[in-house]
Every structure is written in C-alpha cells, then in structure tokens.
Amino acid sequence: MSLFSLSILLLAATVGSAQMTGDLRLVGGDYDYEGRVEVYYSGEWGTVCSNYFNLADATVICRQLRYSGATTFTRFPSVQMQGSGRIWLDNVDCYGTETALTDCHFNGWGSSSCSHYQDVVVTCSGLSDDRRDGTIRLVDGSSSKEGRVEVYYRGEWGTVCDDNFDDRAGRVVCRQLGYSADHVKVMERAYYGEGSGRIWLDNVHCYGSEASLSDCSSAGWGNENCGHYEDVSVQCGDVRKLS
C-alpha cells in the first residue's frame, strides 16, 4: 500500500469516528436499553466498575442515553456480559441529577482496582421520543430537512423501500418531523445513499393526512422484497420547523 493510500485510510477513519470523551453505550444485552456500561475515553471504549454503584448512578447513565430512567443494575454480571480491555471508571458517585456520567465523582480515568467480573450492567426504562417505535429521521442530507428516510422499530433504525412511496407519504414524513408539508419532494433509488441493516417498511400507502408514517398502510414491519438501492429519500419544503 502506498503512503498516499494509507494517509487516505487514516483520514477516513478519523472523520468516521464520532465518539467523544464521556460517550456511553450499553453492550451485550438482548435489547438496546440494557447491557454492560461502556464509556469512551482516549480513543478506547472501556467498562465501569460496580464498586459503590447504585440506582442514582444508573439513572444518570440511562438519562444520558436518552431514556427516562433505570429499572435495574447488576454489580457482578455473567461471564458472557463481562468486558475486556480498560476499566475506565471506578467508585462512581452520582446524586442522580447529573446530565452525564462524567459529571459525577469518580476516581479518575483508569484509576481502578477492579476486575471485569465487577463490570456494571444496567437496564434502562422509558424510551425517549427519538427511540419510540415509529419515530423517523432523515439521514445523510445537507440539512435536517432532507435525506434518506429511516424509521425506528424494536431497538433498530431501518430504511423504507421506495415501492409505491409517493408525495402523500412524503408529506406525512415532513409533517411528523415538524416541517411544512408544502413543496415536498420524494426521491427514489437511494438518492442520499444506501442505508444498512433492516428495511422496515415496504409498499407504504398514505392518504397524506396521517400523523405519522406508521399510521399509513404497509406490508408490515420487516415484510419487504427490496434492496437498499431502493431506499427512499425525502426533501421537506420548509427549513423552519413549525411551532
């Protein structure tokens, strides 16, 4: 590989990395609202030790992940749920009102006397608005009012097939996102690029008056015969969100 090619790959990796210090994720659970707590620091994901961990700490974690609260936590997880690599945080002490885990007191990054059998596992509750089944977003456009249509269902974002998707469906998308339904444009054939993962909706048919895309008729969640080259995209006509 040439030095130029290597430089391009390194640049792409840097641009593609959106993690920031203190970002959180839940790993290893059956659903996206549960799992081993991992925190991002110095280019690495690492775990959180369960020493003195309580429900207030779990609540801050879930709120940072845009859930309303926490239901349970586990101090000594099964072998399958234990992490590897760095243990970034130990002796975490939150009041429960903090907006991020790193706002709480802890020993300092990497200052831990723990082993991975003490990795904390959390289950969150109360999906936020952007994690409810049927929530939609527009992805990979130049602004939030345009892009590939993606819909959230059962813990996953997926795309919508362009089969039978028309301007009436486009108006429902824009209205659901809080934009004007005037001058809507629907683009077929992955105009804003192909998505990945599930294709949740196919053969969507809307009258145009529905409050959300999931109120329209379709083949059913996950029932489709499409490829991602058929992902539908929408441009909403007004960049200003409606009050």
Results as ranks from 00 to 15, higher is better:
Thr135Asp: 11
Tyr207Phe: 07
Phe106Arg: 00
Asp202Val: 08
Tyr153Gln: 13
Arg168Gly: 01
Leu11Tyr: 11
Ile8Leu: 15
Gln118Lys: 13
Leu26Gly: 02
Gly195Asn: 07
Cys104Ser: 08
Asp133Lys: 03
Val27Tyr: 00
Asp90Arg: 01
Ser84Asn: 10
Ser68Val: 10
Thr99Arg: 13
Val139Ile: 15
Gly69Lys: 10
Asp231Arg: 01
Thr97Met: 09
Gly193Arg: 10
Gly83Lys: 01
Ala219Pro: 02
Leu201Trp: 06
Val149Pro: 04
Ser68Ala: 13
Asp57Phe: 01
Gly16Tyr: 13
Thr21Asp: 14
Val37His: 00
Tyr192Ala: 06
Asp162His: 12
Ser125Ala: 13
Val39Tyr: 02
Arg63Lys: 15
Met81Lys: 12
Gln82Val: 06
Thr21Leu: 07
Val121Leu: 05
Thr102Arg: 11
Arg66Val: 12
Asp202Leu: 08
Tyr33Asn: 15
Arg148Ala: 06
Val27His: 01
Glu98Ile: 07
Val139Cys: 03
Tyr229Glu: 06
Asp182Gln: 14
Val234Arg: 02
Gly141Glu: 04
Ala169Pro: 01
Gly134Ile: 05
Gly46Gln: 04
Ser233Ile: 00
Gly110Lys: 00
Ser142Phe: 11
Cys49Arg: 04
Val232Thr: 00
Gln82Leu: 05
Asn107Cys: 04
Leu101Gln: 01
Arg86His: 12
Ala211Gly: 10
Arg66Gln: 15
Gly158Glu: 02
Gln64Met: 06
Gly178His: 10
Val79Lys: 10
Ile61Cys: 04
Cys216Phe: 09
Asp166Ser: 09
Thr123Asp: 08
Gly43Ile: 11
Trp88Thr: 07
Ser2Cys: 07
Thr99Leu: 12
Val232Leu: 04
Asn54Asp: 15
Arg189Ile: 00
Glu146His: 12
Trp157Val: 09
Arg168Ile: 01
Glu224Trp: 08
Gly178Ser: 12
Asp23Ile: 02
Gly195Cys: 07
Ala56Asp: 15
Asp140Gln: 14
Tyr31Met: 11
Val122Glu: 00
Gly46Lys: 06
Gly158His: 01
Thr159Ile: 10
Tyr41Asp: 11
Ile61Asp: 01
Cys236Leu: 08
